[in-house]
Design a protein around this nucleic acid. Structure first.
Length: 279
DNA sequence: CACGAGACCTGTTCGC
DNA sequence: TGCGAACAGGTCTCGT
């Protein structure tokens, strides 16, 4: 579920507080309760509970789609995958059905990891770079230039859609924002990456940034029951709008499956590459 | 190397 | 009303 803008929104909320809950910055973790052992990727659930208790939360950030909590000794990395969410709530509240991990904090609050589908994972580690180091560049980092991006595209013969979803190529994009960025840049999802000119690569990078920044401004997307807050779903141009008119040209938006992911595009604004089949 | 299929999970929606 | 299939914001692993 959450892509870069949603994870950014969640991390910001934990840092700043809001919706009746305080910031969790500099709060001490008093104890931990693992409700679904599969949630703890490392170390063992037992060691996780022992090691995290007593540490305070010193920094809250995001890298790719990971929420990064810097503790006194370790770093807590949380990946929300498809249905995860992090909530700050009163420590004595009834525990909802899909809560998987609870961290009791000072002051009567707890940080809860809620994850219906159980795909989400948490890592407690002193070497976060082991997990974060292999990720691609952050798209919103100004140090990523159009020339760099073009060079990376040229080194790949893969189709744009699966390549942009690959976190080793670029960090943070998921299914929604990839479809939206490709539509904005008028590029077909099946176009081979190494066919892009520098100009096209530059437009694509600008589009990715515009779409992500808009997502962040709208506090992310709330597609179904999972989310609270964000309203970027009201600004989708193509995502889940198949059979509806393209806002830019009026043509009918199509849905195809690419790499087992639903892919939405405008067949007129985003002309098919030669040999890519009709679609 | 690149791609597709399957796995990991639960829930909703849609067609018959 | 019931029931199965398809689908869902992600990522890993395996086989070809």
């Amino acid at each position: 579920m959450p892509e870069l803008p949603e994870v950014e929104t969640i991390a910001n909320g934990l840092r700043q507080g809001g919706a009746g809950a305080p910031s969790i910055l500099n709060r001490r973790i008093l104890s931990a309760l693992v409700l679904w052992p599969g949630t703890i990727a490392e170390p063992s659930p037992e060691e996780f509970v022992l090691r995290i208790s007593g540490q305070s939360i010193r920094q809250i950030g995001r890298r790719a789609k990971f929420v990064v909590l810097q503790l006194d000794q370790d770093v807590l990395l949380v990946h929300l995958r498809m249905s995860g969410d992090l909530l700050v709530e009163p420590v004595h509240n009834t525990v909802p059905l899909h809560h998987r991990l609870l961290l009791a904090l000072e002051g009567g609050w707890r940080l809860a990891f809620n994850d219906t589908r159980k795909f989400g994972r948490a890592w407690l580690t002193s070497q976060p770079e082991r997990l974060l180091g292999e990720l691609g560049p952050e798209p919103l980092e100004p140090t990523l230039s159009a020339e760099d991006f073009h060079r990376r595209l040229l080194a790949n013969r893969r189709q744009l859609k699966p390549l942009l979803l690959d976190q080793h190529f670029l960090a943070g994009l998921g299914n929604i924002y990839t479809d939206e960025a490709l539509h904005r840049s008028r590029l077909h999802p099946l176009l081979p990456a190494n066919m892009l000119s520098l100009e096209q690569a530059s437009v694509l990078l600008d589009s990715i940034r515009a779409v992500l920044q808009s997502g962040i401004q709208h506090h992310g997307s709330s597609i179904d029951w999972v989310y609270r807050g964000g309203d970027f779903q009201n600004h989708f141009q193509v995502y889940q709008r198949d059979e509806q008119p393209c806002p830019r040209c009026g043509a009918t938006i199509r849905r195809i499956v690419v790499g087992q992911r639903g892919t939405h595009f405008c067949p007129v604004c985003q002309p098919a590459p030669p040999e890519a089949g009709a679609a």
